[in-house]
Write a protein that binds this DNA or RNA. Structure first.
Lengths: 169, 169
DNA sequence: AACAACCTTCACGTAAACGTCAAGGTTGTG
DNA sequence: CACAACCTTGACGTTTACGTGAAGGTTGTT
């Protein structure tokens, strides 16, 4: 419990690209590439032009990775989802420096609209996935019925023909 | 109600690649490419080596497209999901020609296992998507709280500090 | 048989999303 | 200040998933 420690400042920590890579599970090349195509700018640069990332950068990179790996979006789509980082940053600064309640409300409303669009996009994707799952469940039920037919009475409706083949694959 | 018509046989219809492309929304090149990487073989070939596709081929192609566009899987992953078309086809033939109830049961069980794996994969993906949606909803709630703070009593807990910045982006 | 409209198999081109050097500058430690 | 370990910016290579001709054969209709 020493009153002043220089290790683990935590709050204003800036990481170099390799540490960021380790933390996020991305490669340094990928991170630079994301910067190249405008997905994020590092919070700062060192005197020697080293890229320096803060906590919010890490969050953003993890989000990008999640959208890429978990949701399967292309980087172009991810760019659409994140939409205009510059405006976002401007808004942040304006929000912090603004004493005007009305302006703060407008900025928050903007942020809300962006998040709502993200949610809508993600839910649309989930709906399509759900449809596919339902479809697969249907195929599964179909197979189960065939199994039931084999176990119970063999050949209930002989010349049926709704399905060309019993689908054994 | 003529007893014998040559148009619209429907049952054993075989389509050429362009018609298949129109039906599935894929390009002829994509369909040939999918064959190249082993995702499907056309049901038959004409005397002049034209590819000929049946109804089940169309289903399969629509499924592939769905996995690609809706679920965002790579063709390699889709190949894993569809897994061993050759075995599938062998199973179909064996199923049709098998009079042995036990064998039919085994073949159906195999098919069921495959479908179950597909469902599991799709549900895993949906779970990850759900997590992301929940996350986005959390961010949205957070923004709403800030809005509420602006509307109601301004600055309820002054020196709080759990959040470094009010997050206006 | 002629003809358009299909189809075939190469084979090279392309955009996305990085991987992988190369050549040189920067940082932190002894 | 020497040195390893990191970083920088090019710049070319690679994989995936096709697009786009080219050169020639096939089908269906007239």
């Amino acid at each position: 419990m020493s009153p002043q420690i220089t290790t683990a400042p935590d709050e204003g920590t800036l990481l170099r690209i390799q540490d960021v890579a380790a933390d996020t599970g991305l490669t340094t090349r990928a991170i630079r590439y994301y910067e190249e195509i405008g997905l994020l700018e590092p919070a700062a640069r060192s005197d020697g032009a080293y890229r320096l990332y803060d906590a919010s950068d890490l969050e953003r990179l993890r989000f990008i990775r999640s959208l890429r790996d978990d949701a399967g979006f292309s980087l172009a789509q991810i760019g659409q989802l994140l939409e205009d980082e510059a405006a976002r940053e401007r808004n942040r600064r304006r929000f912090r420096t603004s004493g005007d309640q009305t302006e703060r409300r407008v900025l928050l409303a903007d942020a809300t609209a962006r998040v709502d669009r993200q949610i809508a996009t993600l839910e649309a994707k989930r709906a399509r996935l759900d449809a596919m799952i339902a479809d697969a469940r249907g195929r599964r039920r179909h197979l189960d019925e065939h199994l039931a037919n084999l176990d119970g009475g063999p050949d209930p409706h002989p010349g049926e023909g709704r399905h060309p083949a019993p689908e054994a694959g």
